[in-house]
Design a protein around this nucleic acid. Sequence first.
DNA 1: AAAAAGTACATGATTTTTCATATATATTAT
DNA 2: ATAATATATATGAAAAATCATGTACTTTTT
Lengths: 156, 156
Amino acid sequence: MSKKFIDNYLLFQLALASHTFSEEFYDQLRAAGVSPPKWRILINLMDCPGMYLTALAKYALYEQSRVTKLVDQLVGEKLVEKRTSHQDRRRVSIHITDKGLALVKPLVVQAKIHEKSVLAGLTPTDRKHLKSILKKLANRHAKDMQVANLKLVDTT
Amino acid sequence: MSKKFIDNYLLFQLALASHTFSEEFYDQLRAAGVSPPKWRILINLMDCPGMYLTALAKYALYEQSRVTKLVDQLVGEKLVEKRTSHQDRRRVSIHITDKGLALVKPLVVQAKIHEKSVLAGLTPTDRKHLKSILKKLANRHAKDMQVANLKLVDTT
DNA sequence: AAAAAGTACATGATTTTTCATATATATTAT
DNA sequence: ATAATATATATGAAAAATCATGTACTTTTT
């Protein structure tokens, strides 16, 4: 079958790789009773606790209003907490709870194992190249963050 | 800010790259009045006209029932046509119309220009490595297609 | 120091997407 | 040939996501 345009189109290639491997891992997540969006919120908070809601949204690649709703659900499950900033009472910093950490930590272990299985399909040099190139590409997103002059975490 | 896990986690890196660049292009699409899902259906059909609905769904990375609905909308806009297969009357092969091609072709030109701008941020060797590695990764998806023993196009 | 403009987050209506399942046709096993 | 199983697509209710806008607070301008 000829897929002349698509198979060489970077955006499709990236979407395909992302989709294929994410779905693989999402099956494991769902088996643990965690939806993919909640996982994305939780690992971001694990990496960077106390992030402000808008920053969290940008890092988790979701819309702000969606993150408001996801966070509210997670608050209901006692997996995260919201704290109003004292410096700026409009802002809400989000903190992962101990319960949240207890849920997410074993999933991080699983994620690392899964990642290994994905990378196992590549040669060591390919692995190195891939990660280094993806990091270079990530800078464009990082620039957007700067342009937005985004304040990330609560430093009270 | 320390993002120790996420910044090195392949699935996140892929999602970030895919998201960042796709959103850039989606802005152009929306300006042309085409939603991202419809674009994905249409380019797949441009590349491979007459695909069966289920195959189209796998290639466009959407669920079957969703593609049924997207295709029905596109039929309403006269951008694609559905034809029942004579060999297997359950199957529906989807064909892009001339109107559909006329809509999509200029967008393909834009997509190629946009892709160039993305790749411009990389060295020529990085560009080569990236595409070749992504193609290797794509084989896992291709294997799924084979496992599913998917009949792709109508050959009446 | 007001007024105006800007920002962070929340809210609710609308749209999109998913999930479970129905329907129609094909294939396989008896 | 018939029954049982499997497959392709459609459908409709439910859930999730988006969009436009509201509210509360801050910053900037005059």
